[in-house]
Design a protein around this nucleic acid. Structure first.
Length: 299
DNA sequence: CACTTGACCTGTCCGC
DNA sequence: TGCGGACAGGTCAAGT
């Protein structure tokens, strides 16, 4: 579910909430959502204080002063929601807020926190159970195979056009959509931002990487960065499940040009947006703006 | 080897 | 209203 802008929004939220809070209790049952042993959780997590929160691609890290780190991937339906139990702590939440309904049947992990007398709770909810939290020794996070495979961060200044094009050479025969979704090419792009950036750059998602001109790839690089930044400003995209740490939805989708806009007019040319299937994923395009490079229909 | 397709889960929506 | 099937933003193993 969450892609880079959503995870970044969550990271920013947690950065303002978690550091200096001490973990007092951890409740969990589903082994796949949180595979660490009860003993390890007691030893390295309970009693530890949060020192930092960071993001790499779609992965979040919550660093603890015990020398351990919680590595978190939300996959499709994961949510991290924070609730302060201290009544004078801000205005609180509306009574019908999702925040007040937690825990619920999708809650996989509950982390209780404390800071100078103020109690709070971080809920990890995940309807489809694809997401995970892993407690690991901090020095080993960088060597973790999942983290190691990740490509460059698209919002870092070192992510140049040349870097982007060089990365894409690794998937030269794939469709550009499959290449964008490959986390080892560029970290953090998912279905929404792949579709949106390809529309902006007027590239058909089924185009093979090798068929796309340098000029178009250069443009795609620019549009991708622009869109990711814009989405972060808008608090990310909420299609069905995504909410931030306060339980609030993101607003980027109201700015989306193609994603979930099938049947509606393209804002550039007026043609109706259609939904097709590329790289096994639902894919939204403007059939007029995004033409396949020469040769007939795709596949 | 390069690339594509299911499987992992649960919930929802759509057509009959 | 009920039921079957398709589909959902991610990733990896298995398949071509």
């Amino acid at each position: 579910m969450p892609e880079l802008p959503e995870v970044e929004t969550i990271k920013i939220g947690l950065q303002g909430l978690l550091p200096d809070k001490k973990i007092t209790k951890v409740s969990y049952d589903h082994a796949k959502s949180f595979p660490n042993s009860w003993e390890d959780v007691q030893r390295y997590m309970v009693g530890a204080t949060v020192t930092n929160v960071s993001r790499r691609g779609k992965t979040l890290s919550i660093e603890l002063d015990s020398g351990y780190t919680l590595l978190i991937h939300l996959k499709m339906t994961g949510q991290l929601v924070f609730r302060s139990n201290h009544s004078s702590f801000g205005a609180g939440h509306p009574t019908d807020s999702l925040v007040n309904k937690l825990p619920d049947k999708s809650t996989r992990v509950i982390i209780n926190l404390k800071q100078s007398g103020d109690h709070s709770t971080l809920f990890f909810n995940d309807q489809r159970k694809f997401g995970w939290i892993r407690l690991m020794h901090t020095p080993r996070v960088q060597e973790d195979s999942f983290i190691q495979k990740l490509g460059p961060e698209p919002l870092e200044t070192t992510f140049s056009v040349d870097k982007f094009i060089a990365q894409l050479q690794k998937r030269i025969g794939s469709s550009i959509k499959a290449a964008l979704l490959d986390q080892s090419i560029v970290a953090g792009i998912g279905n929404i931002y792949a579709d949106e950036s390809l529309w902006s750059a007027k590239i058909h998602p089924s185009s093979k990487v090798k068929e796309i001109s340098q000029a178009d790839l250069k443009n795609l690089h620019k549009e991708l960065i622009r869109i990711l930044k814009l989405s972060i400003v808008k608090g990310g995209s909420t299609d069905k499940n995504y909410i931030n740490v306060e339980g609030k939805k993101g607003s980027y989708l109201s700015f989306a040009e193609v994603f979930r806009r099938e049947g509606q007019p393209c804002r550039r040319c007026g043609s109706l947006i259609v939904k097709i299937r590329v790289a096994g994923r639902g894919t939204h395009i403007c059939p007029t703006c995004q033409k396949l490079p020469r040769r007939g229909p795709n596949k």
